[in-house]
């Protein structure tokens, strides 16, 4: 009983340690004034309202969505078919993808940024496209794991064989059997990738900077001018990430149920 109480205490301590800065930041986004008191002196929607009236923010938000969703879409179009073909027909090549996945994790953002600038800045390609390309490669681990795990749960090769023997073409088998079956895993991987890219700062700031102002760069700028506005940006970011996490959790749960054979 005593041990249980001690465990609960440390658990609450940990939760408090993790949540306190987040809650404080969120509260600061609604605080009318919070300088000399423990709690805010009053609450207001002024900062959020100001933020949504700022076209710079709206444009930055749009750019972040465009960049993240563009990279995810390209990854889905290019990487997913490649993973399907490799897993189903050339499984011996899978080790190369796994190696690429590890390499993605092993490159620090600063090294990557300097490398990209040195290689691409002189050859005329718009640097935002270079960042987009780097993002596509950067989310390989999430897309790969999502697709691979879904395919592993279902013996995809045998499902394809079964569908073909029942008169389906390879395309029909892929569309009617494989895609609906792996869709939840794929969707969760795509959402996860989107949330990672939406919050990315190092690469976009070093390679492109204010020429393509995303939410993260806007946030950086606002930190020096208004703490309340910066907190409001963080609040919106946290809400968005919370929503994405919620959707991922639901989709992943459904995915587990569907393939529990």
């Amino acid at each position: 009983m005593k041990k249980r109480g001690l465990a609960d205490f440390f658990f609450l301590l940990l939760v408090g340690y993790l949540l306190l800065p987040v809650l404080a930041t969120m509260l600061y986004a609604f605080a009318s004034k919070w300088n000399k008191t423990i709690l805010p002196e009053g609450l207001t929607l002024k900062w959020l309202s100001t933020l949504f009236q700022d076209t710079d923010f709206i444009q930055a938000f749009g750019r972040s969505v465009l960049l993240a969703s563009g990279a995810v879409s390209i990854a889905l179009l290019v990487i997913v078919p490649a993973i399907f073909v490799i897993v189903l027909y050339f499984p011996t090549y899978e080790k190369w993808i796994q190696m690429a996945v590890v390499m993605v994790y092993s490159f620090p953002g600063i090294i990557l940024a300097v490398g990209l600038i040195r290689v691409y800045s002189q050859i005329g390609i718009p640097m935002i496209l270079v960042v987009l390309g780097a993002y596509v490669v950067g989310i390989l681990p999430y897309i790969y794991q999502g697709t691979r795990n879904s395919l592993r749960n279902i013996d995809a090769r045998q499902l394809l064989d079964a569908a073909q023997l029942l008169g389906a073409s390879k395309r029909q088998a892929f569309k009617k059997i494989l895609l609906p079956t792996v869709y939840p895993g794929l969707f969760a991987g795509a959402l996860l990738s989107f949330s990672v890219l939406f919050g990315e700062f190092v690469l976009i700031n070093l390679v492109v900077g204010s020429r393509f102002e995303t939410v993260q760069i806007y946030l950086m700028k606002k930190l020096s001018t208004s703490g309340h506005i910066a907190s409001a940006v963080v609040f919106i970011y946290i809400v968005l990430m919370g929503l994405l996490t919620f959707v991922i959790a639901i989709v992943t749960k459904r995915s587990k149920g569907a393939t529990n054979l």
Binding site: Q158, D161, L165, L166, I177, P180, T181, A258, T259, L261
Partner: peptide
């Protein structure tokens, strides 16, 4: 030609 597989290969969806 029809085939029945050891792992059934039923379409889970």
């Amino acid at each position: 030609v029809g085939m029945v597989f050891q792992s059934y290969a039923l379409f889970p969806n």
